[in-house]
Amino acid sequence: MIRVRKAVVTEIASTRPGISEILVELEGEIQRAVSYDAVTGPVKVGDPVILNTTAVYKRLGTGGAHFVMANLSNTRLDVDQAGHIMKMRYSPCQVKTLAVEEPESPHYEVMQRTHRLDGAPVIIGTLHSMLAPAAAILRKLGQGRLRVAYLMTDGAALPLALSKLVFELKEKGLLQATVTCGHAFGGDYEAINVYTGLLACKAVARADVVIAAMGPGIVGSGSRYGFTGVEQGEIINAVNILGGRPVAIPRVSFADARERHKGISHHTRTALGSIALSKATVALPRLEPEKMELVLRQLEESGISRKHDVAVVGAEPVLDALEEYRVKVTTMGRGVQQDREFFLAAGAAGVYVAQDLTKNCP
């Protein structure tokens, strides 16, 4: 179930809060690895490390690197006393966090008083790459006045530090706060589940808009229900239970060679057509007539257009926003030029929400 090897650190390639990307000498070769410094301690050249090499050995796309399980130069690490909520529970890598719901938390009282989202909009995606177009257009159309929080679920990568995209969006002011929920960890705020994560975005992070999506690395199998993006439907239900306004990002592509992802992806058709039990607004970009016809037909055939409200918006400013803020983002290895409709669809929800929130503003 796990492939473990010992290696030696030869170079620190890059660092950002909570993570170091390193090179190691492993079995006579120089290979890439990732060290979560907040979990296994700081790393330096010459350190002997124990690696989980399973994903690279299996030629999976999980980061394309090994992961440090232990740094043998850090044989004694300690934690601060505050907090007792464990994430990745009962595993050798379980991490102690201070969750916003805990009595020890400085946010405990406000969380105790907060039970509703009071109509706050929540943009819900299925892929991590959807975060950038939505955040960029919210910043552009909101003229910097909208406070945006990212709620990272545990549907994919668990450490938020892995995401270069989140680091970039925060550095550029496109995201103001991050909350990690479930077993995901490393956000500005920690929450036990998606419900308290949503409430924390509103009450603690004071967000005007929440973008909820998993971190890097969706898991899929090609089967109808066997992918972690089904959580989109579950998050829609959670937002409605809490009195928010769910706005769903559909996964749209005309560049993916797989037939099941052409037009509206089967992921979206399942999450919105079968898993979501309550209504959301599905924001679509205005596309060329032939492509628009296919997408609308797929929405009808899957039952999405009967169950949810569909809003078609002009999403071209999304591409301008990505260029203006110099955000380079890819999906399945494809950039904006290769998969234009994907990024338009990912940003359409941001256009819809920004226009709604700013229409009455002077």
Rank of each mutant, 00 (worst) to 15 (best):
I2G: 00
V9I: 09
T10L: 10
S20Q: 11
E21Y: 14
L23W: 10
V24C: 14
L26I: 03
G28D: 03
A33G: 05
A33T: 07
S35Y: 03
A38W: 13
D47Y: 05
I50V: 15
T54E: 04
K58Y: 14
R59K: 12
V79G: 13
M88A: 15
P92Y: 00
C93R: 13
L98V: 03
E101C: 00
P106H: 01
R113C: 02
G119Q: 02
P121I: 01
L127F: 14
L127Y: 13
S129F: 11
P133Y: 05
A136Y: 10
K140I: 09
Q143I: 00
Q143S: 13
R147K: 14
A149N: 02
Y150T: 10
Y150P: 06
A157S: 15
E168T: 14
L169H: 02
E171L: 15
G173R: 00
L174A: 03
Q176V: 06
T178C: 04
T180N: 01
G182R: 02
K202G: 02
K202A: 10
R206C: 10
I211V: 13
I211G: 09
S221W: 01
G222Q: 05
I241C: 04
L242A: 06
R245Y: 11
P250W: 01
V252T: 10
V252R: 08
T268I: 01
T270K: 07
L277K: 12
P285Q: 06
R286N: 14
L299E: 00
E300F: 05
I304Y: 02
R306M: 13
V312S: 04
G314W: 15
A315W: 06
P317T: 07
D320F: 04
L322C: 12
M332D: 04
G335P: 04
D339W: 11
R340C: 07
E341F: 11
L344A: 06
A346W: 10
G347C: 05
A349K: 06
Y352M: 05
V353I: 09
